[in-house]
Deep mutational scan, measured.
Amino acid sequence: MTFKLIINGKTLKGETTTEAVDAATAEKVLKQYANDNGIDGEWTYDDATKTFTVTE
């Protein structure tokens, strides 16, 4: 399955996707991606669209 991350950061905005077997696995990968890029904020997840959003 494809999961999307929408980034609403102070210095970085955009989106990325990852392939994962489930939402929990995708969340780990996407949170690591955000952490690697210095993004720390509030996370939400929409199961209907398989989209995570992080807002700083």
Rank of each mutant, 00 (worst) to 15 (best):
N8C: 12
M1R: 09
L5G: 02
D46A: 04
E15I: 14
T49W: 04
E27C: 13
A24Q: 11
T55H: 07
W43C: 02
G9E: 03
I6V: 13
K10C: 13
I6Y: 06
G38K: 07
K28L: 12
D47N: 10
A48C: 07
F52Y: 06
T2M: 13
V29P: 02
N35A: 15
I6F: 07
K10D: 08
E42V: 15
E42F: 12
I7D: 01
A34G: 03
T16H: 15
I6D: 02
E42P: 05
L12T: 10
K50S: 06
A23C: 11
G41I: 02
E42K: 10
T17D: 05
T18S: 04
K28A: 12
G9P: 03
Q32N: 08
L12F: 15
L30S: 01
E19R: 13
I6M: 07
G38E: 06
T17E: 10
V29Y: 13
T16A: 11
V21E: 11
A26T: 01
D22W: 03
L12C: 14
D22T: 05
T55G: 04
I7K: 02
T44Q: 10
T49R: 07
D22M: 03
F3Y: 14
D40N: 14
L30K: 00
G9Q: 06
E15Y: 14
V29G: 04
V21G: 09
K28V: 11
K4G: 04
T55M: 06
G14W: 15
E19K: 13
F52L: 02
N35D: 12
Y33M: 05
Y45I: 01
T2P: 05
E56K: 05
T18I: 15
I6C: 06
K31W: 08
A24N: 09
A26P: 00
V21M: 14
T18C: 14
K10S: 10
V54R: 00
T16Q: 08
E56R: 05
A34M: 06
T49L: 08
F52N: 00
T18D: 02
D40H: 14
W43I: 03
Q32D: 07
G14Q: 12
E27Q: 11
Q32R: 13
L5F: 04
T18F: 11
G41K: 01
D40K: 14
T2C: 11
G9F: 14
A26K: 00
E42H: 12
T55F: 08
N8D: 08
T44E: 09
T49M: 07
K10R: 14
A34K: 02
I6A: 04
T25V: 09
K31L: 07
T44R: 08
K10Y: 11
E19W: 15
N37Q: 13
K13H: 11
T25D: 08
G38S: 07
K50D: 03
T55V: 08
K31Q: 07
A20D: 03
A23L: 09
A23P: 08
T11R: 08
A26I: 02
Q32K: 13
T18L: 11
W43Q: 00
L5R: 00
T55W: 12
I6N: 04
E15M: 11
N37K: 13
T44V: 09
W43T: 01
T51M: 04
M1L: 13
E19L: 14
E56T: 09
T11W: 13
A24F: 12
G14A: 13
A20R: 03
K31P: 00
K13L: 07
Q32M: 10
Q32F: 05
E19M: 14
G9Y: 09
V21A: 14
L12D: 06
K10T: 12
I7A: 03
T11F: 14
A34T: 05
N37T: 07
D22G: 04
V29W: 12
F3E: 00
K31G: 04
K31E: 03
Y33T: 03
T25N: 07
V29C: 07
K13T: 10
E15S: 11
Y45H: 01
T2I: 15
M1H: 13
E15Q: 10
E15H: 10
T16L: 14
V29M: 12
E19S: 12
N35Y: 15
K4H: 10
K13R: 13
D40T: 14
E19A: 08
T17S: 15
I7L: 07
T55Q: 07
I6W: 04
D36V: 09
A34Y: 02
T53I: 08
V29E: 07
T2F: 11
T16P: 03
G9M: 15
L5T: 01
E19T: 14
G9D: 03
F3M: 01
V54M: 05
T17L: 08
G14L: 15
T2S: 08
G38L: 06
T55L: 06
T49Q: 07
Y33E: 02
T18K: 04
F52M: 01
E42C: 09
N8P: 03
K10L: 15
T11C: 14
N35F: 15
D40Y: 15
D47A: 14
M1D: 09
Y45L: 02
M1I: 14
L12S: 09
L5I: 04
T25I: 07
G38F: 07
K10W: 13
A34S: 05
Q32L: 09
D36G: 05
A20Q: 10
L30A: 02
T49S: 10
I7Q: 02
V21T: 12
I7N: 02
T55D: 06
T18R: 06
I39H: 04
N37L: 15
G41N: 01
F3C: 01
K50C: 06
E15D: 06
A34V: 06
G41M: 02
N8T: 08
E19G: 06
A20L: 03
T53W: 07
Q32W: 06
M1F: 15
F52S: 00
M1Y: 15
G41P: 01
V21Q: 11
I6R: 06
D47S: 12
V29F: 15
T11N: 13
A23V: 13
T51I: 06
A48W: 08
T49A: 08
N37S: 08
I7M: 09
G14E: 11
F52T: 00
A48F: 11
I39G: 02
A24E: 13
A26F: 01
D46S: 06
D36T: 08
F3A: 01
D22A: 03
T25H: 13
D40G: 08
E27A: 11
T55P: 01
E15N: 06
K28S: 09
A20E: 05
W43N: 00
K10H: 12
G9R: 05
A34N: 03
W43V: 02
N8R: 11
E56G: 05
T55Y: 10
G14P: 07
D36N: 10
N37I: 15
K13F: 10
K31N: 04
E27F: 15
T11P: 04
K4A: 05
K31I: 06
T11Y: 14
N37F: 14
T16N: 05
E19F: 15
I6T: 05
G14S: 13
G38V: 03
E56P: 09
Q32A: 14
Y45P: 00
T16R: 11
I6Q: 05
L5W: 03
N37C: 11
A20P: 02
G41W: 07
T25W: 07
D36H: 08
L30F: 15
D22L: 04
A23H: 09
M1W: 14
T17I: 08
T53F: 07
T44S: 12
I39V: 11
W43M: 04
A34H: 01
I39K: 02
N37V: 14
G41A: 02
T25M: 12
F52P: 00
T49Y: 05
K28D: 06
V29D: 06
K4N: 05
L12E: 07
G41T: 01
K50Y: 09
W43R: 00
T44L: 07
T53V: 07
I39E: 02
I39L: 06
K31A: 05
G41D: 02
N35W: 15
T55R: 06
A24P: 09
V29T: 10
I6E: 04
V54C: 06
D36W: 08
D22H: 04
L12W: 15
